[in-house]
Amino acid sequence: MSKGVLLVNLGSPDSTDPKDVKKYLGEFLMDPRVIDVPLWARTLLVKGIILNTRPKKSAAAYKKIWWKEGSPLIVLSERLQSKVAERTAIPVGLAMRYGSMSLKKGLQSLVDQGVTEVLTIPLYPQFAMATTETIDVKVEELKNEFFPTLTITSLPAFYNKPEYIEVLSNSISEKLKDIDYDHLLFSYHGVPERHIRKSDISNGNCKMDGKCCFKKGSKQHEFCYRHQCEMTTVHVAKKLGLKNGTYSTSFQSRLGFDPWLQPYTDRTIERMGKEGIKKMAIVTPAFVSDCLETLEEIAMEGQEIFHEVGGKEFTTIPCLNDRDDWADILANWINEWVAVKTAVV
């Protein structure tokens, strides 16, 4: 079989025009694994309310972070794709779960190059229903409908792989060595608590009490986003030799009124500023590419909150983006996959 790889990221509007933003948000928010309520309720919420109010606000936010080359997430993903392709001997494609760089186009581009076996790499370190799972499900749907002869494998969550922890820790330490800071905040994208329960394969053992995340050997950890976020922080803190009390974990970007994973990032920033933290550094390990959530929500809105409550220095640590060592790791995983598949044949 001829092998190929498809890197998959979230996606982006085609431009900062509110019409393009509305189209993108419509596709994103109508995904039943993003807003997991019955279709009638999701349609009422998204098409009846959100898409009539949010596109202009989101478009304004995108304008703040948009690059001359286009969407930062797209540009950075393309740069990463190029570097990974240089390090492997098989075709490396790129697609987005939402937007014009669709999964169908990405798979088709590989098929057009003669690829018959694909490794998809969701560019999310931690598994979540609204990220990794929706990619895997959509890929399977496309395979069944358009690419029935393709063999497809998906790379599992890599939050605890030593080489990933190594490169993430290096990216953080490179930034921290040049600054003085009182606290390092690990901010992960939030999800509704019900998503954690829906992904629980242990028949309800998840108590959402912040304790089971740290128990060893729990089978639900394979699909528990909260556990994987907490353990990413633990692994990096250990690697960097961080002292207890100098770092913590929080969750950003909540939507609606249902309970989401806590503590919330914005409230944590505000609380720490009020408690006397003057110098804060913040890293966003749920993202491998800088995007709206890191460049605008954290670097701009987060900094504004911190300064309003008395904070002085607010340092954001870039995502892995197209770092050479990150590209090396992805290429190594790909080459290992190729070696295993070749050996089996």
Rank of each mutant, 00 (worst) to 15 (best):
M1D: 15
S2G: 06
K3H: 12
G4C: 06
L10A: 08
G11I: 02
T16G: 13
K22Y: 05
V34R: 02
L39T: 14
L39W: 15
R42S: 05
T43E: 15
L45W: 11
V46M: 11
L51D: 09
A59K: 01
A59P: 00
K64T: 03
I65C: 01
K68N: 11
G70K: 09
S77M: 08
E78N: 14
S82V: 08
E86W: 00
R87H: 12
T88K: 03
A89S: 14
I90H: 10
L94E: 10
M96D: 11
R97H: 06
G99F: 11
K105R: 10
L107C: 05
S109E: 13
S109G: 04
L110K: 02
V115A: 07
Y124R: 08
P125F: 04
F127E: 07
F127R: 08
M129F: 00
T132W: 02
D136A: 10
L142H: 12
E145P: 01
T149R: 09
T153Q: 03
S154H: 15
F158S: 05
F158G: 03
P162A: 11
I165V: 14
L168A: 13
L168S: 04
N170A: 07
E174T: 02
K175G: 01
K175L: 03
D178I: 01
F186C: 07
Y188Q: 08
I196S: 10
K198P: 09
D200G: 02
D200E: 10
N203W: 10
N205W: 15
D209P: 00
G210R: 10
K211Y: 13
C213T: 06
F214A: 07
K216V: 05
K219A: 12
H221A: 09
E222G: 07
F223C: 03
R226W: 04
C229N: 03
E230C: 04
E230R: 08
E230V: 00
L242I: 07
K243R: 15
T246S: 15
R254P: 06
F257V: 12
W260H: 09
L261R: 02
Y264I: 08
Y264A: 03
D266E: 15
T268A: 10
M272A: 06
M272N: 12
K274R: 15
I282A: 04
V283G: 00
V288C: 08
V288S: 09
C291L: 05
E296P: 06
E297I: 02
G310K: 08
P318N: 15
C319E: 09
D325Y: 08
W333I: 00
W333D: 05
W337I: 00
W337Q: 04
